[in-house]
């Protein structure tokens, strides 16, 4: 037992172990976003991340998104806030996110990927962190910028988005233990996979409603005949 660790333990002695772990996994994001190759590897293979932290990041991401729509200065954003349904927007963010994770997981066997669904979800959630840490302050910043200083806003925004994309890419690479080329191929396959999943869902629901219609009409017919 190193002295630092035992000292840390001593300082944090009073904390509940689960809370402590949650805090640690949450703060581990800082390491992940600056050292993605190492970070993502340890995240899943060394159990440095937790699902709780991943959920937190997804929730924060959704929250950031809404705050951004509501409080960004109107000079930089054209959102008809009066027409927006927040739940709809959330669904339109969450659903693709989850479907893509699912598709990636489904295809990981095909590509010899090592990651489980939990790992993929975790990596993708941790990849959202730059979006949160840049866009949240950006909401405030947008309110002290004039229109012709919009370049700052756009640049920061692009950085946050590109960073996230890069992290997602590296995340998949490390989770599945792929090379970059293979990751690229698997991403393309994932997109197609997601489409297939959506198609199947559509077919399933339409069949379900057909079946439902069939049974209700049959019930009505029987009731009609009997009475």
């Amino acid at each position: 037992m190193s002295i630092t660790k035992s000292l840390n333990d001593a300082v944090a002695r009073r904390e509940h172990p689960r809370l402590r772990r949650y805090k640690e996994t949450l703060l581990y994001a800082k390491y992940v976003i600056f050292h993605p190759f190492d970070g993502f590897w340890d995240l899943v293979h060394e159990k440095r991340g937790s699902l709780a932290a991943a959920h937190t990041f997804v929730l924060l991401f959704l929250l950031t998104y809404v705050l951004k729509l509501m409080y960004t200065s109107f000079q930089f954003i054209t959102t008809a806030i009066q027409y927006i349904n927040i739940y709809e927007r959330w669904a339109s963010l969450l659903l693709p996110f989850l479907v893509l994770c699912l598709a990636n997981w489904s295809l990981s066997t095909l590509f010899d990927g090592k990651g489980r669904f939990k790992d993929i979800y975790m990596a993708m959630s941790y990849a959202l962190v730059p979006y949160i840490i840049i866009q949240l302050p950006l909401i405030l910043i947008s309110n002290v910028l004039a229109f012709d200083e919009g370049a700052f806003y756009t640049v920061l925004m692009s950085i946050s988005e590109l960073w996230c994309l890069f992290l997602a890419f590296v995340g998949l690479m490390e989770v599945h233990d792929f090379g970059p080329g293979k990751t690229l191929v698997s991403i393309v396959a994932t997109v197609f996979g997601a489409m297939v999943i959506l198609f199947l869902l559509l077919v399933f629901f339409s069949l379900l409603s057909d079946a439902f219609g069939y049974f209700t009409s049959m019930y009505r017919e029987i009731v009609f005949r009997l009475s």
Binding site: F74, Q75, V144, A146, F147, D148, E149
Partner: peptide, 14 residues
């Protein structure tokens, strides 16, 4: 929704 003019006024205000 005149951003250009708003930005100008905002600069003075700021």
């Amino acid at each position: 929704h005149d951003r250009d003019n708003y930005g100008r006024a905002f600069r003075y205000y700021r």
